[in-house]
Design a protein around this nucleic acid. Structure first.
Length: 510
RNA sequence: GGUCCGUUCGUCUAGUUGGCCUAGGACGUAAGAUUUUCAUUCUUAAAAUCGCGGGUUCGAAUCCCGCACGGACUACCA
């Protein structure tokens, strides 16, 4: 049994899409579970699509989520370099090998000529495909005389190298998720392996690199399934079939409404992040929002993503990274695409927020407090966070839920006033102040004096009085247990707030 | 158009060797309980004739065939 080695191989063309994050996660879980290696390889063979900052973004995003690598561009390793542009000199010899063995051929067709050909076919409602049925009518080393071919190459005419598919061969790809998938070579096109700019295409580079890096399992998105037969044929052509990696093609992540692949635009449209981190487009200045900046916890994102297309085979839903590593199995990956569900993502975040220490939540709350000009003692902030965290799904909701712990109300919700502040209330509130002033400032003592002796003892309306007190202290009718709130903000502050309410709202007639 | 992949509650899904499935769980939704309010929490409910149609079988969500629908791919992009 060969050592498990998997790779995550993104293209640095922009921010890492959440679907890509899931692919990375599954690779990571599989590697860790099997004591294998996780490799980060950058696939930047298309120089025209290079985006500055994308590579760093990918590394930072995966690091934030706790997806760690054993080898990669940022770490090095024994199989480097790990960036395909840095491996450029390596690929030529493999293209030559294919050329020599008759698995590939030179093609001189200009891009414009190919475009024209496609248009021509299109006008006849057909699709042009560069394959065994058309290649002899194109300009390549199969259709041209040998001396002409060498003349063109010697004169520096640009060319590409294309794979030469056999004419009628059933090619079977064994997929760990879908089983055997068979396609006939006659229907496959002669893909370009080596471009005229001297770089390999994805197809060549990924086979060469996976082989050289001794990759054992290729876990990637379903969009690669149609080109998998090409990849299998390349292993065969190189004579590497006995060490060919095993394939697993992951189902797609679909948009929450309607059908189709989840895209950047869906996030903007429906108001949820499609990227792990905020991304500032260096060219347009446009900002795409990320999970991290929206207040999602990395462990919540990981858990949610893990379950989008995989399950442990039972009802368990909350799982830490360690549990995921233990429980993960390729057999339990589903075959069908998963629609992204924003409500469930929120729920996961709520659950993980509850598991957070009060200190960690307080830490996340600090910037908001600062924004509102609050400079409260840390232990007080921690206490408030601990008391209020169960009511929120995101740290960003904290200020809305807790501002009255830090700032006294300056106005009173009119609806609450008319509903709760009944005639005689100023007298009751004055009594509250009196109790606070005379009874020891302890929860039980005040509970006894106010709730039991005063309210119940005089058969007063509990809801009416307690809610009026809340109105006085909070400004509206929401919040935690009233006495806990009082104990938290303190005796002096409570009395001040109640007095202020008496002065501001005053006595209600009738 | 062609090729390939897929199809269980609104959504994520359990179901892997056909019988314990009168199809289970979770999110969301609704109702109720608790509470001094709101939220939390708890309980309950509604919700999939397992895409449709045929077979095979004593028995099929599970196996086979056909159809429909959806998606991916179809670049000198990955």
């Amino acid at each position: 049994m060969r050592k498990v080695r998997v790779r995550f191989a993104p293209s640095p063309t922009g921010p890492l899409h959440i679907g890509g994050v899931r692919t990375a996660l599954y690779n990571y879980l599989f590697a860790r579970q099997n004591g294998g290696d996780m490799i980060l390889r950058i696939e930047d063979t298309d120089q025209t699509r290079f985006v500055p900052g994308a590579e760093d973004y990918i590394i930072e995003a995966l690091d934030w989520l706790g997806i760690k690598f054993d080898e990669g561009v940022h770490l090095g390793g024994n199989y480097g370099p790990y960036r395909q542009s840095d491996r450029k000199p390596l690929y030529r010899q493999y293209a030559d090998q294919l050329l020599r063995d008759g698995w590939a051929y030179y093609a001189f067709d200009k891009p414009e000529a190919l475009d024209a050909k496609r248009k021509e076919y299109e006008s006849q409602k057909k699709t042009f495909q560069y394959d065994c049925t058309t290649r002899l009518s194109m300009e390549n080393s199969l259709s041209l005389p040998a001396d002409e071919v060498s003349r063109r190459i010697d004169s520096g005419e640009p060319y590409v190298v294309r794979f030469k598919f056999p004419e009628d061969l059933d090619i079977t790809v064994h997929d760990l998720i879908r089983g055997d998938v068979t396609m006939n070579s006659r229907l496959l096109d002669d893909k370009v392996l080596f471009k005229s700019d001297g770089m390999p295409t994805y197809h060549l580079a990924n086979i060469v690199d996976d082989h050289l890096m001794e990759v054992s399992h290729v876990i990637r998105g379903e969009e690669w399934l149609p080109s998998a037969p090409l990849h299998v044929m390349l292993y065969r052509a190189f004579g590497w079939e006995d060490t060919m990696p095993q394939f697993a093609h992951l189902p797609l992540l679909l948009k929450p409404d309607g059908n189709g692949k989840l895209s950047k635009r869906d996030g903007d449209r429906l108001g949820f992040p499609v990227f792990p981190l905020d991304w500032h487009n260096p060219e347009t200045g446009e900002i795409s929002s990320g999970y991290r900046e929206r207040g999602y916890l990395p462990e919540a994102v990981v858990n949610m993503l893990a379950l989008l297309g995989w399950n442990p085979g039972n009802d368990q839903e909350l799982m830490s990274m360690d549990e995921l590593i233990r429980l993960f199995s390729i057999e339990h990956i589903s075959k069908s695409g998963a629609k992204f569900n924003i409500e469930k993502a929120k729920w996961f975040n709520h659950e993980y927020l509850q598991k957070c220490s009060d200190e960690r939540i307080a830490e996340m709350f600090l910037p908001q407090l600062k924004e509102h000009g609050i400079d409260a003692p840390m232990d007080y902030v921690v206490k408030v966070c601990g008391m209020m965290k169960e009511r929120i799904s995101f740290p960003s909701e904290l200020w809305d839920q807790t501002h009255y712990f830090f700032v006294a109300p300056t106005e009173y919700d009119p609806k609450a006033v008319s509903k709760r502040w009944k005639p005689g209330m100023t007298t009751h509130m004055a009594k509250v102040i009196e109790i606070l002033n005379t009874v020891p400032f302890q929860y039980d003592a005040i509970h006894q004096a106010l709730l039991e002796d005063y309210i119940k003892g005089n058969e007063l309306n509990m809801g009416q009085i307690m809610n009026s007190l809340r109105l006085a202290v909070v400004g509206t009718t929401v919040g935690p247990d009233m006495l806990t709130l009082v104990m938290t903000i303190g005796k002096e502050e409570t009395i001040a707030r109640v007095q202020r309410a008496i002065d501001t709202i005053g006595e209600i007639e009738n």
